[in-house]
Each structure stands twice: as structure tokens, then as C-alpha cells.
């Protein structure tokens, strides 16, 4: 028996022999030094990245305070500080009636309405596709997948015509935009569906055995557990309209009263002459748009991250 034991482990070679104290110590420190070196490099990279990433925004912030006009050449710090740009945004009569204030309110209205309605629609869609089983479910999912492969811009023209017939363009662009954003939002169900997929089915079943109808299961059991994804959907739905340029510009059709901030700000620097006159105003406008969204985002960052990492991954 004991012979067998020996043969199983022919060489028991120890990497560090116990008698070699000096060698042990050196190796030990070598590992630590490597880690420290590695970490330092990483810190350096991270700091560099922070600078690079934040640089443009710092620039915008500073340049928005520049009272002088064309500040395109390398000066970051304003020559002369002042709030002129901000004031001019709201009071200037250079463009048609409306101006920045109008754009801001427009966009705010659009995004609030969109946030609420879109969340409801997306949640309905994703819950149904995730938990309920019905004939044609697979077909529906495949169908929407195929629909999504068409570029969105294609539908722009006809939607514009339809909205025009309904008189929802130009000045009345706001309801028109809301309608368009919301109507097809059901197709963006993937992230929410991924989230719902992770809620255990036995909760549904326990509730149904306890006497709940499917509607009650959704309202009483699933929704209270879905706070992260609801907030994520609300947040993304809210942020969307602030950045939509293509569609908003097409529908607003150069009527200032109907523009949202994206289109409006772009019109400020659309031509070179406009650019030289309004560049700093554009910066100011950018700051005003960026700040509330950034603040909102920071507050709800936790939910956003959870939504992206939890739901988006499943595809």
C-alpha cells in the first residue's frame, strides 16, 4: 500500500524551498512591485482619460461666459467674463419670435409627455412578450425585429405628410412630435423585456394560485418589483427628445416656434456668418440644456446602470 502512495506523486517540487529566505522575500516583493507599477500606469491612464473626456465640456462652460463674439480660436478662458450670452438667448430679437425660451419649453413639454406615455407603452409591450404566452408571440417578435431593420428615416417623409394633413407641423409641431415618438415606441422593448425575464416565474404562479387575475399579478406583484426598470425607461424616454435632431427639424420646418432645442441651437451656428455671431450663445445654450439633464442623470444613475447592465445584455 505505501509503495503505491509514493508513486502517485513522483516529484514534489516546491517552487520556493523553505530554506531560502532571501529568495522568498524577493519574490514576495516582486509581486507587489508589479502590482504597484501596474496600478500606477492605470491611474495615469484614468487621469488622462478624465481630462480628455471632460475637456470639451469645460471648454463649453467657459466659452459660454465669453462676452466677445467669435471665440473659435484656441482661447479657452474668456477674455471678458459676463452673462451676456445667457441673457441674449432669452431676449434676443435676432431670430423669429420664440427664441431659446420657447425652444426650451417646447422640448420640456415634449420630453415629459413622451416619458410618461412611452414608459407605459414600452412596459405593456415588454411585460406581455416576457411573461404572457399566446399564439403569434414568436411571430410578433420576429416581425418587429424585421421592421427594425428598416432605417427610421425612411418613414420620415410620409409621417410628415400625414402630420401636415392633420395640421400638426410647424407651430403645432409639439403634439405631432409627441405622437410620432410615442406611437412606435413599442418596438424598443428589448431592455425592459430582458429585465422582466429575470423575475422568477414562480412569483406569478404563486399569485395566480392565490387568486389573482393576470392583470392583478402585473399590478400587485410585478410592478412593485420593477422600480429600476421603470425609472430607466422613464429616464431614457425623457432624454430622447432633447437630442433628436433629424425628425424634429423636418417637422418643425424652420418655424422657430415649433423647434426643439436641438434644432434651434443648430440653427444658431448653421451658417458661417451665423456661427461667428452666435458661437458663444450656442455654448451658453448648450450649458443650459446639459445641466438639468446631467443633474437628473446623476441622481438616477444607479437605475440607469442597472437597466443597461441588466437588461441590455440579453440582447
Amino acid at each position: 500500500m505505501s509503495e503505491e502512495k509514493k508513486n502517485l506523486n513522483p516529484q514534489v517540487a516546491s517552487p520556493v524551498s523553505s530554506s531560502d529566505n532571501i529568495g522568498k522575500g524577493k519574490r514576495h516583493m516582486g509581486l507587489k512591485a508589479k502590482t504597484i507599477a501596474g496600478n500606477t500606469i492605470i491611474y495615469v491612464i484614468l487621469v488622462a482619460m478624465t481630462v480628455i473626456w471632460l475637456f470639451p465640456f469645460v471648454c463649453i462652460l467657459f466659452q459660454s461666459f465669453e462676452v466677445d463674439h467669435t471665440n473659435m480660436t484656441g482661447n479657452i478662458l474668456p477674455v471678458k467674463w459676463g452673462f451676456d450670452n445667457y441673457i441674449r438667448l432669452f431676449t434676443s430679437t435676432d431670430f423669429e419670435t420664440g427664441g431659446f425660451g420657447r425652444w426650451y419649453v417646447n422640448t420640456l413639454v415634449i420630453s415629459l409627455a413622451t416619458a410618461v406615455i412611452q414608459t407605459i407603452i414600452v412596459l405593456c409591450m415588454s411585460y406581455t412578450l416576457s411573461r404572457l404566452r399566446f399564439k403569434g408571440r414568436k411571430f410578433l417578435m420576429n416581425f418587429m425585429l424585421v421592421l427594425g431593420m428598416f432605417p427610421g428615416m425612411l418613414t420620415m417623409i410620409i409621417l410628415y405628410r400625414v402630420l401636415a394633413d392633420l395640421n400638426l407641423i410647424k407651430q403645432n409641431a409639439i403634439p405631432g412630435l409627441i405622437l410620432v415618438y410615442v406611437a412606435s415606441s413599442g418596438m424598443g422593448y428589448y431592455v425592459s423585456k430582458g429585465f422582466f425575464d429575470t423575475v422568477p416565474k414562480s412569483l406569478d404562479e404563486a399569485a395566480r394560485v392565490d387568486g389573482a387575475t393576470r392583470a392583478q399579478v402585473l399590478i400587485k406583484v410585478i410592478l412593485p418589483l420593477s422600480k429600476p426598470i421603470v425609472i430607466y425607461t422613464l429616464l431614457t424616454a425623457f432624454m430622447g427628445p432633447w437630442g433628436d435632431f433629424v425628425f424634429a427639424s423636418y417637422i418643425a420646418f424652420s418655424t422657430s416656434a415649433g423647434m426643439n432645442v436641438a434644432v434651434g441651437l443648430q440653427s444658431l451656428i448653421a451658417t458661417p456668418s451665423a456661427m461667428s455671431a452666435n458661437y458663444t450663445m450656442f455654448c451658453a445654450g448648450g450649458v443650459l440644456v446639459a445641466i438639468p439633464i446631467t443633474v437628473l442623470f446623476l441622481f438616477l444613475q444607479k437605475y440607469y446602470v442597472e437597466g443597461v447592465t441588466g437588461g441590455a445584455v440579453k440582447g
Partner: peptide, 17 residues
């Protein structure tokens, strides 16, 4: 439907809310 059958069920993973 389950709610009309008057059954009670205990699940393997408890399924507590």
C-alpha cells in the same frame, strides 16, 4: 383558472413576494 379551483400551493423556491 387557478383562482377558481380553490387550491393552495407551496413552491420549491418559496415564491414569496
Amino acid at each position: 383558472q387557478p383562482k377558481d379551483r380553490y387550491v393552495s400551493m407551496v413552491f420549491q423556491n418559496y415564491a414569496l413576494y
